Amino acid sequence: MAKKLDPAQARQAVAVVGKWLETGVDKPSRNEIAAAVRATARLMAQDAPGHSVEVRVPPFVAVQCIEGPRHTRGTPPNVVETDAHTWLLMATGRLKFAEALDRGLLDVSGSRAAEVSKWLPVFGPLVAH
């Protein structure tokens, strides 16, 4: 069993990229973005355990979440894929899943993929320092 992620660690990782999320400028380093993406995606998967939906934020992370049939081989039947900026906006409540979908910022496939929206935001926006 994997070690549980401390939500405070995820908040700290997001705080580092907070100004970028708020303004879209001063893009953080790749490592800082990766840390925030991985922490928030893994925290969501921890809160919504399961294997029926795969959330992908390439090139940083892919997690399986939400109870249901387990996917083990090939292309998963339920996938949500997006870029790091969009993911972090959704994970922090700055962008709603439905709005991101309407704006074409998400690639969603499968009948259960939209269930991810029930688990977002992972936590609310943090104030950038």
Rank of each mutant, 00 (worst) to 15 (best):
G110C: 12
N78R: 01
E81A: 14
P69K: 13
A41G: 09
N78V: 12
P58R: 11
L89G: 00
R73M: 06
A98F: 07
Q64T: 04
T75S: 09
T92Y: 04
E67N: 08
P58E: 13
K96M: 05
M90R: 08
G74L: 09
V63G: 04
G110T: 08
D83M: 07
F123A: 04
D107T: 15
L126H: 01
T72C: 04
D83S: 12
V116G: 06
N78D: 14
V122G: 00
A41H: 04
E54V: 14
A48P: 01
T72I: 12
P59V: 05
L126S: 07
T72K: 08
M90E: 06
P125F: 05
P58L: 09
R94T: 03
S52H: 05
H71R: 03
L89W: 01
M44W: 03
A84D: 12
A91S: 11
G68K: 07
V57Q: 09
T75P: 10
S109A: 14
V116C: 07
A62L: 01
V57A: 05
C65Y: 00
V53K: 01
F97D: 12
R103I: 02
P49T: 11
A98G: 12
R73P: 00
A113I: 11
G68H: 13
T72M: 06
G74C: 11
G50I: 08
L88N: 08
V108S: 08
G74Y: 14
C65N: 03
E54Y: 01
P77T: 11
D107Q: 14
R42N: 07
F123P: 11
V116N: 04
A98S: 14
E67Q: 10
I66H: 09
V61R: 10
E54D: 08
A41D: 07
W87C: 04
C65T: 14
W87F: 08
N78E: 11
T82Q: 09
V108Q: 03
L106S: 10
H85E: 09
L43H: 02
E54I: 02
G124T: 06
R103N: 13
P125Q: 06
G68L: 12
E99L: 12
Q46I: 10
R112W: 09
R94C: 02
S109K: 15
A113N: 12
V116R: 00
A98Q: 15
H71I: 02
M44C: 09
A84Y: 01
K96H: 08
A84G: 10
L88H: 06
S52G: 06
R73F: 15
V57Y: 03
R94I: 00
G110N: 13
S109F: 00
A91I: 07
T82Y: 02
V79T: 14
L43N: 08
